[in-house]
Design a protein around this nucleic acid. Sequence first.
DNA 1: GTGCTGCTCAACCATTCAGTTGAGCAAGGA
DNA 2: TCCTTGCTCAACTGAATGGTTGAGCAGCAC
Lengths: 119, 119
Amino acid sequence: MADQLSRVFQALADPTRRDMVARLATADATVGELAAPYDVSLQAVSKNLKVLEGAGLVTRSRDAQRRPVHLEAEVFDLMTKWIERYQREAEERFQRLDALLARMDDEVNDQPDDEGAAS
Amino acid sequence: MADQLSRVFQALADPTRRDMVARLATADATVGELAAPYDVSLQAVSKNLKVLEGAGLVTRSRDAQRRPVHLEAEVFDLMTKWIERYQREAEERFQRLDALLARMDDEVNDQPDDEGAAS
DNA sequence: GTGCTGCTCAACCATTCAGTTGAGCAAGGA
DNA sequence: TCCTTGCTCAACTGAATGGTTGAGCAGCAC
């Protein structure tokens, strides 16, 4: 099976599942409540919940016949950590490039009559 | 076609593509360079790059026969904005629940002999 | 018990996806 | 000019995905 990070990204790649997560952020809900707004079968919603559950984004408990669904928001950290790492690396690289360009610019300005400076 | 946010999540759901993004964070690379570490055909890598490109995570330019690949890190913001919104909502909800529990606890402590306090 | 509600499981189907191979194209280098 | 390099496109394949329907089960209500 894929690693959790892959499963989280995969789970959120579907607009319906993202919408479910969005709604669960404000309140827990039963499968039926979650299914109501969508024009698909209850079974399809149940399947999507299984995907979210497999990614660790959601847990299901039991209350008589109902299976209330609860959002586990901590899993978001997995993603944000990954994203921020490479966002930061790319940003730092951009800064270095910027500094390099500035330095080259300075050298040109410091020696305006250098025979190599003009093209 | 799916919306961009879906395409970004979808693109990053694959470990190979995430690894490519990770490597592109430190330096641009050609298709061949990117393909080198993986045990798949060049065409497969080219296809994965197309997915990343479709998500806006990457752009390709031209340098003679080579097609240098460049990471566009700004797209990460799309994801982090989505994530942070619902992370925040879930967090606030948790805070409210916490406050409610604290308030209930206070009421019990304030009126310890209330006939309704004990079950 | 019987029946209703809320949900899951199993089987199936169409579509998408990640990989393959084979062909071909653009841009130097001989 | 022909060859090599670096890559893309097209067609195919097997596996996974997202949906369907039908059956069935757990937990109340009667």
